[in-house]
Nucleic acid binder design. Structure first.
Lengths: 222, 222, 222, 222
DNA sequence: GATGAATGAGCCTTCATTCAT
DNA sequence: TATGAATGAAGGCTCATTCAT
């Protein structure tokens, strides 16, 4: 977590540092990220970075646990579902929010994906990653239990399996589908920020509908 | 690819080297994998490793493109589906084979997962990874088209979305479900080879059935 | 070329590093030059050297393309020939300048000789070496053409052959003659800096005169 | 020098080894020459090479001090000048022989040039190189003294300077002129064996004549 | 607080030489 | 004699972290 000195900086300087760090950590895996690149891009000195953060891991952790969630919240907005919303409405809203975020902030998306995939993190970082997943899972399980209680979901549905599907579908899975819709590989898409902006509103809606439909109705003939 | 020297070694020595390499490459990402660990664990000198393989990338590539597929084949056996099998049968067979392999060879599974997720491979290795994915996708699309032609799948199903789902479900998704069934996190499970062996045949069958069912029938009430 | 870091160093430190590098690169061929020797002699750490230069090739290139020419210029001074000077005057001036530099800076001379002879340079360095030769050749051809136009040179003289002679005579050839005048082998002379200092002004002038005379009048009886 | 075992080999095998060694040592400088390449090209085992020769330096020394001179002799033939020949005839003969050898055996020429330029040789090899030069110099000085005694050379000619010129002109200098005649750089010419074969007999004779003329008559107007 | 030079452990790769079979 | 696997000392380069100014 940043040292007090970081918070005393001007908004602009903090911004430069954050942008530089995001650019670096989102373009190469943690182990290959180079603080020299960050300080150069941020226009600060190496020593300064160490007065703002405890080190490489600390900077990365802050980015992922504090800054990124904040930005996400800000980008998506409080997405409290309308009271009484069905699980389908809630999920569709979540799907759409996810895609919209990916389209609006491809670099942050790349950062997040990288984090979820990185197996190499220091133990402390791995723990953060684990908590992320646990929180998402808890939310999903709750949602599914509610849905089942309301009779929106099959009574014999295995909630754990469904949660696993949704955990993926709401994150990387959706991005993967997005790439497919653009005729690309996920990595190709992430490596070319900007290409996601070419997705039309129509494609977006259709995509979400197809995913939702697969989850709700399955692939087989009824 | 290994140099001829490697093939001239005794079975036991080759085994020591392979095991050591798998252990290293499956426990840390490629960039962090340390050949010193490999040679130490294998009980050979650094120079020897370079007489067997062209270098780090070469060793890794061989492991992933030759050795691992061979081991997989040996472990699963040729799984040609019976002629006239329905898509459901084929998928179930694939799911079961996947789980069985994961249970039998957790370390190799870890190696494979890491490979598919690693963002930091040399360009040549990244290309191999891309081809893996492309091949899997082509197989799935073919399977789905057949299924739809036979009327086993809904006519309005988006095959690309379905293929995306299956690509994940047959690989990492299935492992994730496996972990959930054991009350663990995917990474925890992979980090503790042996724990997957505790999965009973009953749990296995149930799991595959639930996944298949979700894909075929969906989560909603019909 | 050096990184900015290098220019920020104290004059004394830069000097230590340069001296150490010259000593190393002038005493063994490029491929055998050892950066460990350089850093040890310079009293700096290995990492520091890499903060000053991009690597071995970079250090070498800078030494040869920037630092050495600068030192040469400083040692010889701008030697613009007087307007209207004959080719003989110009050549004699060049010969004298060459010998004086060799006498004053035997180690730098050794460095230069090595560079021009080294067959094992990286492609980029080899290109630099080639350009050196091409520039010298162009200058000589121009000089000779002028001389021939003015009637100072035989009309039937093959300029290319003459340029080849001069290219050697002005560089290594002159050093070789210098060594002969001291009763030594070229390499022995270069390996013992200091011995060239024993050359008297008289010997120097005589030597240049003999060389010039051979080139102008030939060895045969008129 | 080769061990007795080498001489017991079949002619063909010795030839293979020699060819492989020449190819390697003539294409990269001594320090970069790789015995692995030699044994591979020769089709023998590493151990065998060490049973024939004491090591890398030994092989190289033999090549340069025994084998190459022998081949040269064989290629040029006993070039005893006709009794009573003038220095000009002797020199022209030597020049022509040199060029012919370069044209006939570009690879051996390359090997020789490399040897003369290599500053990096082990002390023992450097000594060999020194002896080469000393022998050539002694021969030249003798020739020049004779010439002067006979009145073929100017009485005031500095023989040492003349010997220096000839030493270069007969070796590298002639090759350099050869390259110039072909519009190439010396290194380019040596790196492309075969190109020297394009030199016509006419060019050859003209070249030698120009060089001889420069040495005898000088560049200035009489 | 800011700076940026200094550090040194770490890692991949090369290759001449040895030696057991 | 022949073989070729084994060795290990080098050597170039990277980069997170420290610390004096």
């Amino acid at each position: 977590m940043p040292k007090p000195t970081f918070h005393n900086l001007s908004e602009a300087k903090r911004r430069r540092i954050t942008d530089a760090a995001v650019a670096e950590f989102s373009s190469v895996p943690y182990a290959k990220a180079n603080l020299d690149h960050v300080v150069k891009a941020a226009g600060i000195s190496k020593g300064s970075l160490y007065q703002y953060f405890g080190g490489k891991a600390d900077l990365y952790r802050w980015l992922l646990t504090s800054w990124l969630p904040e930005r996400k919240m800000a980008a998506i907005g409080a997405q409290a579902p309308p009271p009484g919303a069905s699980i389908w409405q809630i999920l569709e809203q979540a799907f759409v929010a996810g895609v919209r975020f990916a389209v609006a902030e491809p670099e942050l998306t790349r950062l997040g994906i990288r984090f979820l995939r990185d197996h190499e993190l220091e133990p402390a970082l791995a723990e953060v990653s684990r908590q992320h997943r646990a929180a998402a899972d808890a939310w999903l399980m709750h949602l599914l239990q509610q849905g089942q209680a309301r009779g929106e979901l099959r009574a014999d549905l295995d909630l754990s399996v469904a949660a696993g599907f949704l955990a993926h579908a709401l994150g990387e899975g959706m991005l993967d589908q997005l790439a497919r819709a653009l005729g690309l590989d996920l990595h190709e898409m992430l490596d070319e920020p900007g290409v996601v902006g070419t997705l039309t509103e129509d494609q977006l809606v259709t995509l979400v509908r197809h995913v939702t439909s697969l989850f709700r109705d399955g692939a087989g003939v009824p």
